[in-house]
């Protein structure tokens, strides 16, 4: 099992860096090229959500991202240290309901990022806890003899 861990300050500029690192590791782990855009977007959404939550509640705390090659799957876990206010706004990944909300009374739809992740990742688990939210998502990765795909 190969693991890469990254922590970053809650700054929007760092989200792009996290996306780039995740995409590079996904490619190296053997995730199909056709899925890399989904990895990039889903990881970006999870990190953006964490950055926004930290800026509101705990701007000095870092956000943690863990990238694992685990038994033929590429697994990403984004962990924050902020309350999970926005998750209460999400009741499903039903885009039409979200659109209604966005065009109606809610000026910004904070749960939209989670809905996008749910629509993109092969496997998603959102775990709100007393000390923050953990979003784990994974995609199939081609197994290779040394655990890493050729670059």
């Amino acid at each position: 099992m190969a693991t890469v861990e990254l922590t970053f300050s809650a700054l929007p500029a760092h989200v792009r860096t996290a996306r780039l690192v995740a995409t590079a590791i996904a490619r190296r782990t053997g995730v199909a090229e056709a899925l890399l855009d989904e990895v990039r977007l889903a990881v970006g959404e999870a990190c953006s959500r964490a950055v926004e939550a930290h800026r509101l509640h705990c701007p000095g705390e870092p956000i943690r991202i863990e990238l694992k090659d685990d038994s033929g799957r590429f697994e990403v876990t984004v962990t924050d240290a902020a309350p999970s206010d926005d998750l209460k706004a999400v009741d499903s990944s039903d885009g039409y309901r979200l659109v209604d909300a966005m065009l109606g009374i809610v000026p910004e739809m904070p749960g939209l990022g989670i809905a996008v992740i749910a629509g993109l990742a092969d496997d998603v688990e959102v775990s709100p806890g007393p000390t923050g939210v953990k979003i784990r998502m994974s995609w199939p990765a081609a197994p290779t003899p040394n655990g890493l795909a050729a670059v």
């Binding site: 885009g95 039409y96 979200l98 659109v99 065009l103 939209l112 809905a115 996008v116 629509g119």
Partner: peptide, 8 residues
Amino acid sequence: RITGLTKV
């Protein structure tokens, strides 16, 4: 498409 915004 995921978010239904193609209808909007």
